[in-house]
């Protein structure tokens, strides 16, 4: 199975006559069990692209499709971890996590098994019956991740999931995400503006430029998936980060002026 992003473009109407091109000529493939990270300066359309892939926005041109699905009769399922987290405040942790399972009309028993399994995976068993407002930011996003994993999607989308968290929580959550990802091995498209995060998580990093958003370069991160933060990889890690920063730098400076 693979996900093909085929020649996708997106134009927004600014006014009656004016149009801005947010995305242009976007072509890439997400392979099975691949972790792809989109990075770019603010305003490069990375979130727009993720929303298009997630079916929350229609592209102006091009298309997105799944190829070689194992089960040809099944519709591909995509789940999203939102930047805004977007938990339903009137549902407990458990009720939020099983939301997708409920909508799939799974039996109560299956809902309970899967719900408990994924709540345990994101480390929230103790808070199963708490409401979102009782949780810290990091814990809320764990629920968001649990909810996305519970439906066992063909593609997992993550839209700057940790950008609202403080730096320490963020570092811990990145480590934890890798551990979880290793267990589930889901094809993932991850959006961030944080270069270190991209190098830390990605199999491949797609660097976007802005005005219009185009693919500037695709970089394979040739480091073992786990333990990239260790000292022995420090030099290589920094090299990748520097390479990406040089690609983005000019655009980021321009973004500042707007």
């Amino acid at each position: 199975m693979r996900i093909v992003i085929d020649n996708v473009g997106k134009k927004f109407k600014k006014s009656k006559k004016e149009e801005t091109t947010a995305l242009e000529d976007i072509n890439f493939i997400i392979h099975e069990k691949e972790f792809v990270v989109l990075v770019g300066p603010s305003g490069c359309g990375k979130s727009t692209l993720l929303n298009i892939v997630g079916g929350l926005l229609s592209p102006s041109s091009g298309s997105i499709y799944f190829e070689d699905m194992e089960d040809e009769n099944k519709d591909p399922s995509v789940s999203i971890v939102f930047q805004e987290i977007a938990l339903l405040p009137w549902r407990t942790v458990y009720q939020n996590v099983i939301y997708g399972l409920e909508e799939k009309k799974m039996s109560k028993r299956e809902q309970m098994e899967k719900g408990d399994y994924y709540i345990d995976m994101v480390g929230l068993s103790e808070f199963k019956h708490a409401y979102p407002k009782q949780l810290s930011g990091g814990m809320k996003q764990r629920v968001g991740i649990g909810r996305a994993l519970a439906v066992e999607p063909d593609l997992l989308l993550m839209d700057e999931p940790f950008s609202a968290l403080d730096a320490q929580t963020r570092t811990l959550m990145q480590e934890e995400l890798l551990t979880i990802w290793n267990r589930t091995q889901l094809s993932t498209l991850y959006v961030t503006h944080n270069i270190e995060e991209a190098v830390y998580l990605a199999d491949r990093v797609i660097v976007l430029s802005r005005h219009p958003g185009r693919i500037k370069e695709i970089i394979s991160i040739d480091l073992p998936k786990m333990g990239r933060g260790e000292a022995k990889y420090r030099a290589q890690f920094d090299q990748y980060a520097e390479q990406i920063w040089q690609l983005i730098r000019q655009d980021a400076v321009e973004a500042l002026k707007e």
């Binding site: 009137w90 939301y99 997708g100 909508e103």
Partner: peptide, 27 residues
């Protein structure tokens, strides 16, 4: 009602009726 909640519900498989029942009404 925050549109992101509606987007989340639709992402996780809700049809229009369930969006009203599970998101818009409680919200």
């Amino acid at each position: 009602v925050d549109p992101i909640l509606i987007k989340a519900a639709v992402t996780f498989g809700s049809n229009h009726l369930n969006v009203i029942r599970k998101v818009i009404l409680p919200g």
